[in-house]
């Protein structure tokens, strides 16, 4: 009988915990506005400071913006579409996914964790910094600098 009491108490406090998060609905309305207002396409044009250190071409701007803003699961459509169109090489995709794997859905996940009592801004800063370092290292491991890559492409064309 003690077990049943404990389960019932747990159920009540569980429902209360969820109810305390009601304002998340407001956050998602905000994110929806960002998506519907064409902000993603606009943001993708300003991704150059992120792309350059990662040695990624401009085509990676949209999936990076989508991953950062909406997240891997919801941004997956854009990610997979970019990959299928073949505009990014396997190496470029790997570097992009290392960066995005560590740092994505920066609005939703930061707010969620702040809601349960973690230091949201500190978390976001750490996440972005580690993603930048890991991505930077991965870019050095797999990708040529833009100038060399362009040179190699033109060499290949001559041959």
């Amino acid at each position: 009988m003690m077990w049943l009491t404990w389960l019932w108490e747990g159920l009540l406090s569980g429902v209360l915990e969820v109810a305390r998060l009601w304002w998340l609905v407001l956050l998602f309305i905000g994110i929806q506005f960002l998506k519907d207002g064409g902000w993603l396409t606009r943001a993708s044009r300003y991704m150059a400071p992120v792309l350059r250190p990662l040695r990624l071409p401009g085509e990676a701007g949209l999936p990076i913006a989508a991953g950062l803003g909406i997240g891997l699961t919801y941004g997956a459509g854009i990610l997979i579409q970019t990959a299928r169109e073949g505009r990014l090489s396997r190496d470029e995709l790997t570097v992009m996914c290392i960066f995005l794997g560590i740092c994505h859905a920066i609005f939703e996940e930061t707010v969620l964790f702040a809601a349960v009592g973690a230091n949201g801004l500190l978390l976001l800063a750490i996440r972005f910094a580690t993603a930048a370092v890991a991505g930077w290292l991965a870019a050095r491991a797999w990708l040529q600098p833009a100038a060399v890559a362009a040179q190699m492409q033109s060499d290949a064309r001559i041959r």
């Binding site: 998602f28 309305i29 929806q32």
Partner: peptide, 9 residues
């Protein structure tokens, strides 16, 4: 947008 956002939330 509000409707879709509410549903997503």
């Amino acid at each position: 947008s509000v409707k879709r956002g509410t549903r997503a939330g």
